[in-house]
């Protein structure tokens, strides 16, 4: 029961943040350009694809992502559904068509693998384990943005992110053995902003 409450709170927070940021006027929402990204690695699978929108002059963005790790890579299939929230920290302008932006954020991920559960089968006593199908991933990222003069594309960006998992942070905080630099992993990707 406790476990279920934690799951509901987790998803409530993750879902409420994007909804809070959305404009009240629905026409304003449809005006927002669509962001599409393709990512390699980074706790979301071998390859993940996502779509979403940005708000507050592109300072805050939200993406819904699906990632897949096929069995052929390491012998196991993993499907991942994620909600990625990122917040722009700074921008370095190179010229009018090129800039570099830095951002941080959190991804709530739901993984479907062999023994992952949101709600455990009845033969487990209540509260025996926390749900292991959901995790939060924290990241810092850097993005090289090219502004385009194109009918449909507004910008094309290449990004790299350093991310870590909630559980790894907990291990690093709990023990001296796991150092701060032991818990990060890298992902790379490409993103498009449509007009």
């Amino acid at each position: 029961m406790k476990c279920k409450i934690k799951i509901y709170i987790f998803f409530f927070i993750i879902l409420v943040f994007p909804l809070q940021a959305m404009p009240n006027d629905s026409s304003e929402l449809t005006k927002k350009p669509l962001n599409i990204q393709v990512q390699y690695a980074g706790n979301l699978g071998l390859i993940s694809v996502g779509a979403g929108k940005s708000y507050f002059h592109d300072k805050l963005s939200f993406l819904i992502i699906y990632g897949y790790l096929p069995k052929i890579i390491n012998g196991t299939n993993v499907h991942t559904f994620a909600l990625k929230t990122s917040c722009k920290l700074a921008v370095t302008k190179v010229n009018s068509n090129l800039n570099m932006s830095y951002y941080t954020g959190i991804t709530a991920l739901y993984g479907i693998a062999r023994n992952t559960y949101l709600d455990y089968p009845d033969y487990f006593p209540d509260g025996y384990y926390n749900a292991n199908a959901i995790h939060a991933s924290f990241f810092f990222g850097s993005r090289l943005n090219f502004n385009l003069i194109h009918q449909k594309l507004k910008t094309i960006s290449f990004f790299t992110e350093l991310g870590t998992l909630d559980y790894h942070i907990w291990c690093a905080l709990k023990t001296k053995y796991i150092g701060f630099f032991d818990i990060w992993n890298l992902n790379v990707g490409i993103a498009f902003t449509l007009k």
Binding site: A41, G42, N43, L44, G45, L46, G67, L69, I73, N74, T76, V78, T80, L89, A90, T92, M100, Y102, L109, G111, A113, R114, T116, H135, F140, G141, S142, T160, L162, L165, Y167, F181, D182, W184, N185, L186, N187
Partner: peptide, 23 residues
């Protein structure tokens, strides 16, 4: 932000690529 990011990139990754926590 740039310095933090570069520092993390250079020193921050033991196993640099992680596909999934369930890998």
């Amino acid at each position: 932000a740039g310095i933090i990011w570069i520092t993390l990139t250079v020193f921050g990754c033991n196993d640099i690529i992680e596909y999934s926590p369930y890998d």
